[in-house]
């Protein structure tokens, strides 16, 4: 008797949908709907129309905040790179033990909440804090206050986001075959040329990953700029919160939120066209 293909095929096609359905429904209800509501409010509150967007895109205050946000994110990304690349390099060129210790430190920093690390910077940079104390001890009689400035919030953000950069670069660097470097050296590459022609291209994916991640998180950063930054130089997320909490300006806040979201998605989209999005967080 014949062994024919059973009609299992029909059931097999339904099965993944059944498994996926609860989550799909959930995300529709508690992700897409609230997100849609933000978009909705941006064009209906307080009146139907594009007034809010006009205000956000042309008003000097809002424009300045968005530009400021963009530049701060870029600055933080560059600083993270300046901190992360040398450290990742050192971790690959020191003893196993030291590399593990540094890795442990970075993982620990990574897992400590944003809030705790922000608070720690307030303690460090406070008027009665160790940094001022150290400056005073070595002879700066009356050091200027550094808390609640653009400097302090940028510094803290670099610290908070550096682990993303380091981990990304480190993991890529670790996979470089040492034989490749040796063979480049045998062909006469050394110093800066070795770095430029061999090391840099090989670690580029890690740099790209880390940079996009840091930049995107920084664009939407709320906690640290609000707590540590200068009140006069807000970033986008802070201003959105401000509009909602202080002025109950839902329409304007939503319009800004949508602009922020679109900018974020554009960055991710450009990235994903080149590398694929799932690699980013992987």
């Amino acid at each position: 008797m014949a062994v024919t293909v059973s009609n299992l095929a029909g059931r097999k096609n339904l099965w993944p949908w059944l498994l996926l359905a609860p989550l799909a429904l959930y995300l529709a209800l508690f992700f897409l709907v609230p997100l849609g509501q933000v978009a909705m409010m941006s064009v209906t509150e307080p009146r139907v129309g594009l007034d809010n967007y006009e205000k956000v895109l042309t008003g000097t205050l809002y424009r300045r905040v968005f530009i400021n946000t963009f530049f701060t994110a870029a600055l933080v990304t560059v600083c993270c790179l300046l901190v992360g690349y040398p450290l990742a390099y050192l971790m690959n060129h020191t003893t196993e033990r030291r590399a593990m210790a540094i890795l442990l430190l970075i993982t620990m920093s990574f897992w400590t909440s944003f809030l705790v690390r922000t608070y720690a910077w307030m303690v460090l940079l406070g008027n009665n804090g160790p940094v001022i104390w150290l400056l005073a001890t070595i002879g700066f009689a009356d050091p200027p206050g550094i808390l609640f400035t653009r400097f302090s919030s940028t510094l803290a953000m670099v610290h908070i986001l550096a682990p993303y950069m380091i981990m990304n670069i480190y993991s890529v660097m670790k996979k470089i075959d040492p034989a490749l470097i040796r063979s480049a050296e045998s062909m006469g590459a050394y110093g800066t040329s070795l770095f430029r022609h061999v090391y840099l291209p090989l670690t580029a994916p890690g740099i790209a990953n880390g940079s996009v991640l840091v930049f995107v998180i920084c664009l939407g950063f709320y906690v640290t700029p609000v707590l540590l930054g200068s009140p006069t130089e807000q970033m986008a997320a802070g201003l959105i919160g401000h509009q909602i909490e202080q002025f109950l300006a839902f329409g304007l806040g939503s319009a800004m939120a949508i602009v922020l979201l679109i900018v974020t998605l554009i960055v991710l989209w450009i990235y994903s066209r080149r590398f694929g999005l799932d690699r980013l967080y992987g």
């Binding site: 008797m1 014949a2 062994v3 024919t4 293909v5």
Partner: peptide, 23 residues
């Protein structure tokens, strides 16, 4: 794999001691 039952044959029969393994 067809004998083990992890793949279905497109045609044909397999029997052990005259008993078909089909299905």
């Amino acid at each position: 794999m067809i004998i083990a039952g992890f793949e279905d044959a497109t045609h044909g029969a397999i029997t052990i001691e005259g008993q078909s393994l089909a299905g």
